[in-house]
Each structure stands twice: as structure tokens, then as C-alpha cells.
Design a protein around this nucleic acid. Structure first.
Lengths: 341, 341
DNA sequence: GTTAACCTATGAAACGTTTCGATAAATCCA
DNA sequence: TGGATTTATCGAAACGTTTCATAGGTTAAC
């Protein structure tokens, strides 16, 4: 096993060259007071000449802060191909730039069930973004550990535990309302719904919203107009035939995620159903792909990038502001009209 | 500014509880020899009870290794929405799991032109993957610094400098050949080409391959059958009209990237051109989106996930094997037949 | 029964920072 | 001018590890 040891320039090297104590150089590097302007100037010049670069790891060890944003993501074989998450991450990366932090990723299956808190301790992550919590797993102890130890974090999902935490989510009721009102305006009153995963925050919320609003708006109320997916493409493709087989077919289908809508679209095409001619189709999320499908999918946009950025903003505030109360940011969805309705 | 200081369990805490020196605990934690089985057992038990977790930062500082893979990515406003890179990253993440390393990202615009080497020193990154080198920037000094200091790295692009380095790329000549032979087999002999960015490795390579092969295969050789894009959607949309305006139109268009092909597709649709009825269209890459466009795009697959994984594999080997010679891995492309030809 | 060889465990030093109390120098005020 | 106050700089300690030379304690060999 090779080692690299040609050591790089440290704060002590700079100090020696400048003929001062290395603690003084440290003060300069951190823009702290109590250093005379001319000495500061001189040290800065020398450190530039020498190409000094602070060692973030040593800094991290002593200060117990890491200058990173740690993103914890759920077990998923091909996480980095799921554009839903990636748009959130794009927002997170934006924020990283703003706060000058590097980005670290931790996959839950890799960390073998280690708690969020343990991950943060292990890597001295002081700012953590938690994506898409699995509701079958009880994370309340974990959340408490994070809070008790003063680690700043946000969830990008709704959190139902009793602890007050930073979280960012979309207004699902409003999103479903936008969709249903739009479909109603197109004359639909018999609407099929493909629900999302019951083990998430969004799945049940959108389902409830659909039930409540479709009743209120006077749509057909048959039990079998609702089928149950899990947000994935495959589940959309699998579930939509149940709607198509109904003696009395819906005139529009609303899927609780874009992936399911695209899956449904494939299944519908396979049966020769024309969209929107024979049947209208709507999705939810506005992920990257949906502008490219044929027909381009009408959907409800979740402001995913904003959500990622906001999650970091909140965590940063709870780190910096003395009496910051953790908060839930509920962002507004938006109707994106394309050609599938 | 709040601080979190409720300190966590360290190796010394475990040592104290076990009544041994902390260096002994260290030996146990690292599975090193020279510890009697029964003591090892006891220490392991105690450390589990106490929930000990090694501090990776301290470990990193002393060992000058970081247990991470650092990915350096090019300046790009929305990097995390570019599926081309993300598929590579998905492969890198796979490898991270395999080698039990965490993933770190460094955006070149954020690091404000810091050299790769400086980034690696700053964060003690000992394994680095460099995505998509900009050929207008001379990185040879940077590359030499990395090599001289024993930092393992791979480029995910072809590297033309004189230093031997790990790199992973696709066989562009073969890819273009697959595309052209397929088009020829469909009876095309007048083929328009949209080239990629001249500041990359792949752009000029695919362009040259097109020129050479299209001559060899006896296709029409008009200068204006070639237009110049930069791999982006917008450039495809912008450039393709030049081909459509030709007095003698091509019967097929081959774009050097999928994004350009999709852009071209939009422009062609806007002019009422039917694909593949009026004109065939091929892309290159097989990014995520192209299966969803209408018609689904026939393209040349780059094995992006494999490339990401291979890049890490090579870097790991050059770190672990005493006399490992850096190598260039040229992966084979593959023809993906869909419905645009 | 002595010496050599080995194995286990130890303690100190090191990694590159930040922080903090102490000291020295400079400035102030009377 | 001298004491008090402020400012500038320093040195040591700490962060949580790994590593390495060394000291005891066993065992093996003669």
C-alpha cells in the first residue's frame, strides 16, 4: 500500500517563514482581530506566495465543524438516476455554493442502518439534509439525538413526529386542488387516481386530498377509481390497466407522481388509447423527463430546486441564529399545462 | 453562533472502560494483529455497548487519507440536472459502496479555479475522479502535481497530455461506425452531422470519425452537411435548421449527443418534419431522457455507469498496487435501436 | 536454567489546526 | 513620569486518531 507523504505547506511553514507564531497566522487566516494591519498584510503575502491552503480536516477536527453539507439519501439501487431527487440536490448544491460548503453524500444502505446522528458524529457533519424519510422506520430517537447535540438539519419531506424540526415540503392539498380544478374545467367528472407509496408523507396526503376534494367537487365516487402505486414507473404501468378495465372508464387519470404517469402512459399507448383524445392524463412533480414524453405531460410542479435550497437555508439559520425556532416550510405547487389533457 | 459540544464517545472512553491503553483499542478497531483474542473480544463488546464510532476526521488527519471519493465537476449552473453526468455519478456511487467510501463533490466554479491538487490537499482527498475536462484549460501541471504527490485519480474523458494517467472513455470511432453502418443499412447515404463541443475530447473525435468514415463508406461529402453544436439541447435546436434549409436535404441526421438530438427533434417537429418518416435521426450517449421522447431515439449507448465505476476501480488500483501503470480504459459503445430511424 | 525469540500491551509522539491564558509592548490618562 | 489600560503576539493545550519504539511476560530452544 503506497502512501503519499510529500507533506504540503502548513500553517507552521508560513509562520516560520514570517518569523511569527503559528497561532498568529491562524488569526490572520480566519480574519480575526488582534493582528496589526502591517503584519497581517505581510503574512497574507507570504502565505499566498507559498500557496498555503488550510487543511479542512484539521480545522474540522478542532472546531467540530466540517464546512460541508451532508446529504443522507434512502436506500435505492440507482439513486443518482432518479431525477426527482436530483432536482432537489441541484437546489442543495446551489446553497452549498452560497455558503461555501462542500457536498457529501451518505447512502443509507451503505451506512448499514447507522442512525443519522451516528453518521454526523462519524464525519463531524454539522449540517445535514435528510431526503425522503421512510415512514416505516421510526426516526424520532434519531431526530432527538440530532437536536440534543446541536446538529443543524432539515428534512425534505413532511415530518409528523412531535419534535419541531426544520422541514420542507409542498402543499399537497393545493397541488391536488389545482389538478382537479383544471380537470373539472376541461369537463371531466370521472377521474381515476393512482396513489403513491403509503410509506411516505406525500402518498397518503395526496390520496386524502383526492378523496376529500373529489367528493367536494362532485366527481364520481366509485371505490375502484382509486388504485394504489408506489410512485415508481413500474407501479404506474402495472396499476393503470385496472382503471382501463372498469366497465365505466374514467375520462381522466391523475397520477400522484410523474413516474407513475409515464408508466401509465406507456400502458395506455400499448392499448391504443390516445392521450388526451380518449383520456386525459396528469402527473405530479414536474420531473425532468415529463417535458419530453409524448404527449408532453400536464402536471403539478413541485418546486424541487427551491425545496433543496430552502432546506439548507433553514439548517444554516438554525445553526447561526440564537433563538431560531425550527420550522416547516410549505411551498406552493404550480399547474404546468402541457398537452396530455 | 451556537456550538455543539456534548462530546461523543471516543476511543479513549472505550479504553478507560476496558482498562486498557487507547492504542490497544485502536488496534482492535482496525483489525490489526498483536491483540489477544479474548481482549479483542472484550473490547469489541464494550465498544458496541457504548456505541463507539470512529471519528473519520481524526483518522483522516493522522493517516492523510479520507475514506472518500472526491468528484470534481465542471462549472455548470445546473450540474445536477444533467443526466449525462449523473449516470456516471451513479456508477461512481456504486463503486463507493463497494469500497465503503463516502462521496464528496467539488464544483470548479465554487472552488474558484483552485487546482485539483489544491482541492485534494485542502480536504485530504486521496482518491479523486475528474469529470469532463475543459480542453481550453491546461491541466498538465495540475495532473503532475497529483501524480507527484501520490494522489490516486482518474479522468472520465480522454486525456491527451504526455503523462500517463488513469482515464476512462468510450470508443468514439467505433460508436460513430455503429451509427453510420446502421444508417447505411437503412439506405441512407446523405447524412447530416451535428458536432459536439470543440473544447472537449469527444467533440473533435466524433467529428473526425464522422469525416473519415463517411468518406470511406461513400456518403455524400458536402461541406455543409456538417454543422457545429456544443453538445447542448439548445445548440441542437439552433443548428439543425441549417441542415433543413439545404437545397438538397440529408435523409438522416446524426447528432454527436442525445441532448442535441432532442433539440434537433424539437426544431424538426416545429417544421412539421416527421421522424423517421421524412428524416431519420440518431443521437449519441443514451442518456436517461431519450427513451421517453417521441419517437424514442435510436442512439449509441455510452456505458456511463460502467465508466464511473471503472474510473474508481482504476484509481483504487493505482493506490493499492505497488507497480500499477496508469491506464486508459476505452469502453465499447453499443447501438440502441429505437424508433427514430 | 539461561538465552533467545516472540507475543501482547503500553505510552508518547504526531497529524494541522484553533483557542485561550499569559506576556510583552504600546498607548493612554493624569 | 508612572501606573493603568489596551493591543499585539506568543506558547501550550486540545481535538481523536494512528503509529512506533519499548517494556514485560511467555514460550521455545539449547
Amino acid at each position: 500500500m503506497k502512501r503519499f507523504d510529500k507533506s504540503s505547506i502548513t500553517i507552521k511553514d508560513v509562520a516560520k517563514r514570517a518569523g511569527v507564531a503559528h497561532s498568529t497566522v491562524s488569526l490572520v487566516m480566519n480574519d480575526r482581530e488582534h493582528v496589526s494591519p502591517k503584519l497581517r498584510e505581510r503574512i497574507l503575502k507570504i502565505s499566498n506566495e507559498m500557496g498555503y491552503m488550510p487543511n479542512m480536516v484539521a480545522r474540522s477536527l478542532i472546531s467540530k465543524k466540517s464546512a460541508t453539507v451532508g446529504v443522507v439519501f434512502p436506500e435505492n439501487p440507482h439513486f443518482f438516476t432518479i431525477t426527482y431527487f436530483l432536482m432537489i440536490i441541484d437546489g442543495i448544491q446551489n446553497a452549498c455554493k452560497k455558503y461555501d460548503r462542500a457536498l457529501m453524500f451518505f447512502s443509507l444502505d451503505q451506512t448499514k442502518g447507522e442512525s443519522y446522528y451516528k453518521i454526523s458524529r462519524k464525519w463531524l457533519i454539522d449540517l445535514m439534509i435528510i431526503l425522503n424519510v421512510d415512514y416505516t422506520r421510526d426516526i424520532s430517537k434519531d431526530i432527538r439525538d440530532l437536536k440534543d447535540n446541536g446538529i443543524a438539519f432539515s428534512l425534505v419531506t413532511k415530518y409528523n413526529g412531535k419534535e419541531k424540526v426544520n422541514s420542507v415540503c409542498v402543499d399537497n392539498l393545493e397541488g391536488v386542488r389545482l389538478a382537479l380544478e383544471y380537470l373539472a374545467s376541461k369537463g371531466h367528472k370521472r377521474i381515476g387516481f393512482i396513489s403513491g407509496s403509503p410509506n411516505s408523507a406525500d402518498g397518503p396526503e395526496r390520496l386524502d386530498a383526492f378523496k376529500v376534494l373529489s367528493k367536494k367537487m362532485g366527481f364520481d365516487q366509485d371505490e375502484d377509481l382509486i388504485v394504489h402505486g408506489d410512485f415508481t414507473f413500474e407501479s404506474g404501468e402495472r396499476e393503470v390497466p385496472k382503471l382501463l378495465e372498469l366497465k365505466k372508464r374514467p375520462t381522466a387519470i391523475f397520477a400522484a407522481s410523474d413516474y407513475m404517469a409515464i408508466g401509465a402512459m406507456r400502458a395506455m399507448k400499448a392499448q391504443g388509447i390516445s392521450i388526451p383524445g380518449d383520456m386525459a392524463l396528469m402527473g405530479f412533480d414536474n420531473t425532468l423527463e415529463v417535458a419530453y414524453v409524448e404527449p408532453p405531460l400536464t402536471t403539478i410542479r413541485q418546486p424541487l430546486q427551491e425545496m433543496g435550497e430552502k432546506a439548507v437555508d433553514l439548517a444554516v439559520r438554525s445553526m447561526n441564529e440564537e433563538n431560531f425556532e425550527p420550522q416547516m416550510a410549505v411551498l406552493k405547487p404550480e399547474l404546468i399545462k402541457r398537452q396530455s389533457c
